[in-house]
C-alpha cells in the first residue's frame, strides 16, 4: 500500500501529462498539475525553513563545533522574514510592494544580498584559472586539440584577437581569431553539444518511462518489493 499509492499517482499523472500534449480538451490538465506542484513546493518551504531553524538551534544549544555561525544564520533568517512580512521601513502600508525603495527588505537586498551573491559568483574567475591550469595539458592528441581551441576562444573573446590577426585579408577572414572562435563555437562545439542533447533527450524519455511504469522506485524510498 505504502508503495502502490505513490506508484499509481506517478503513473496517472505521467500518462495524463503525456496525453495532454496531444489531446486539446486535456491541454489545461498539464498546467493544473504544474500548479499543484508549485502549491506543494510552497508548503514544503515550511519544512525547509523549519529544518533550518531546528538544525541551527540544536547546534547552538549543544555548543557544537562552529556554533557562532549558527547565530548569524538564525538572525539573518528571522530578520529577512520580519522585514518582508511586516514591511518594516516600507514607505507604503502593509499592502505596498515588497521591493519598495527605502524599505528594510530592499535595503538588505541591495546592500547585503546582492554583494554577497556577486562575491560567490566572482569566485568563478579564480576557479576557472586554477581549473584550466590543471586541465589544459597536452597529454595526448585530443587534449592538444582542446588546448589549441581554448587558446583561440580565449583570444577571440577579447579585443586582442582582432588586434593580433587584424592584418589577415578579408578573403581569408575565417582565419581572423574572432571569426575562428565563432566557427569553433558554432560548428565543432555545436555538433558535439547537439549529440549530447539528443542523448540527454532519449535518456530523459527512458528514465521517465521507468518512473511512470514503476520500474524505478528508489526515489520513493528504496526498491524493496
Amino acid at each position: 500500500m505504502k508503495r502502490n499509492v505513490p506508484l499509481a499517482i506517478t503513473f496517472i499523472v505521467g500518462a495524463v501529462l503525456i496525453f495532454s500534449v496531444f489531446i486539446p480538451p486535456m491541454e489545461n490538465w498539464g498546467e493544473d498539475f504544474t500548479l499543484f506542484f508549485d502549491i506543494i513546493a510552497v508548503f514544503a518551504f515550511f519544512l525547509g525553513g523549519g529544518n533550518l531553524l531546528r538544525v541551527h538551534l540544536t547546534k547552538l544549544s549543544r555548543r557544537k563545533q562552529d556554533w557562532p555561525y549558527s547565530i548569524v544564520t538564525i538572525m539573518g533568517f528571522l530578520l529577512m522574514l520580519a522585514a518582508g512580512l511586516f514591511r518594516i521601513g516600507n514607505p507604503g502600508d502593509i499592502n505596498a510592494s515588497l521591493t519598495e525603495q527605502g524599505s528594510l527588505f530592499q535595503t538588505i537586498y541591495d546592500s547585503v544580498f546582492v554583494p554577497l551573491g556577486s562575491t560567490m559568483y566572482a569566485l568563478l574567475a579564480f576557479f576557472v584559472a586554477s581549473a584550466s591550469y590543471r586541465a589544459f595539458r597536452a597529454k595526448n592528441r585530443e587534449a592538444t586539440i582542446l588546448l589549441v581551441a581554448a587558446f583561440i576562444i580565449l583570444l577571440g573573446r577579447t579585443p586582442l584577437g582582432t588586434i593580433v590577426t587584424g592584418w589577415v585579408p578579408e578573403s581569408f577572414s575565417i582565419l581572423q581569431i574572432p571569426n575562428l572562435a565563432i566557427w569553433i563555437m558554432n560548428s565543432p562545439n555545436l555538433a558535439g553539444q547537439r549529440a549530447i542533447m539528443i542523448g540527454i533527450g532519449l535518456g530523459v524519455v527512458s528514465m521517465s518511462l521507468r518512473l511512470i511504469l514503476g520500474i524505478e522506485r528508489t526515489y520513493l524510498g528504496g526498491d524493496d518489493k
Binding site: A125, V128, Y133, F136, R137, K139, L147, F151, T158, P159
Partner: peptide
C-alpha cells in the same frame, strides 16, 4: 582581456611543467 591573457600564461606554464 587581461584575465584571459593571464589564464593563457598559466596554461603555458602548466604545459611546460607537464
Amino acid at each position: 582581456t587581461l584575465a584571459h591573457l593571464v589564464i593563457m600564461a598559466f596554461i603555458v606554464i602548466g604545459n611546460i611543467l607537464y
